[in-house]
Computed example of a mutant assay.
Amino acid sequence: MFVLGHQPREPLTMKGGTTFTFVTDGIHAAFEQARAAAGDRRISIAGGAATVNQYLTAGLIDELRLHVVPVTLGHGDRLFDGVPPLRLEQVSARQASLVTHLTYRVHH
């Protein structure tokens, strides 16, 4: 796991073996480290709107999964704020009792 942050920290290894590596030199560095660690496997980027917006703007997301919950928070970062126009192709939509899961393919 590669975690974006502003303060340098030593890696943290959890019981079970998962290691959190803290990356302070930006999204591209975190992406490259994740890509190297994954080898031929896919990587996932998780985070809030600010993180997702940065990766969308950089063209580093191929598939976007949104989990929409009908809760109004009152403030926060907006998804797609400052992101250049994208073409999103809906791949799937699945509704559960308290959440709707949406998946889009991102065409750059």
Rank of each mutant, 00 (worst) to 15 (best):
I45D: 03
T51C: 09
T21H: 13
L64G: 08
Q33K: 13
Q7I: 14
E63V: 14
D62Y: 00
T19G: 06
A50N: 11
L79K: 01
L60N: 05
F22N: 02
A38N: 11
T24H: 04
G82N: 11
V83W: 06
T103L: 01
T13Y: 14
T72K: 03
G82I: 11
E10Y: 08
L56G: 00
L98R: 06
G76Q: 01
R87D: 00
D40L: 01
L60Q: 04
G59H: 12
V99Q: 05
A93E: 10
A38G: 08
T18L: 12
G47Q: 13
I43L: 15
H75E: 15
G16D: 07
D25I: 03
V69M: 14
V91D: 13
L98P: 02
A36Q: 14
A49H: 04
T57V: 08
R94C: 06
T13A: 10
R9W: 08
A96I: 02
H67N: 15
F31K: 00
Q95E: 15
A38L: 10
V83H: 06
A49Y: 04
E10Q: 14
H28T: 15
V99S: 02
F31H: 03
D81K: 09
V71A: 13
G39P: 02
I61N: 00
A49M: 06
V52N: 03
K15C: 05
R35M: 07
T103D: 05
D77G: 11
A93V: 15
F20K: 00
E32K: 08
A29K: 06
A46D: 11
P8N: 08
S97T: 13
T51R: 01
S92G: 12
L102N: 01
T21V: 12
V69H: 11
V91A: 13
T100F: 06
H75G: 13
